[in-house]
């Protein structure tokens, strides 16, 4: 447990600190106006990258599980709960 806490705090420091740095060290805008459209759509595409990656992992896992553990799969074997018929 203690090790986990240490590990987590190190990770936090490694991830969060650079991010804070990045946010606050931004130079003042030099005359040019920010492009609202580009900023927001960029955020959207970043989020969609995450969403579709996670989505691929989760749906991929779900589809694999459904395919592998269906009862008609050649390697399907009774679960250990089936002996007693209780689960």
């Amino acid at each position: 447990m203690a090790r986990a806490i240490v590990l987590m705090s190190i990770l936090t420091v490694l991830v969060i600190l650079p991010m804070i740095h990045l946010v606050f060290a931004e130079p003042a805008e030099a005359g040019q106006y920010i492009n609202r459209k580009a900023e927001i759509w960029n955020l959207f595409f970043k989020m969609m990258t995450i969403a579709f990656t996670v989505g691929a992992v989760v749906s991929g896992t779900l589809i694999w599980v459904v395919w592998r553990f269906r009862e008609s799969h050649p390697k399907a074997k009774p679960t250990k709960y089936e002996e007693k018929g209780e689960w």
Partner: peptide, 10 residues
């Protein structure tokens, strides 16, 4: 964090 930052800029 990302959303917060963009909102702040916008």
């Amino acid at each position: 964090a990302e959303a917060w930052n963009v909102e702040r800029i916008v």
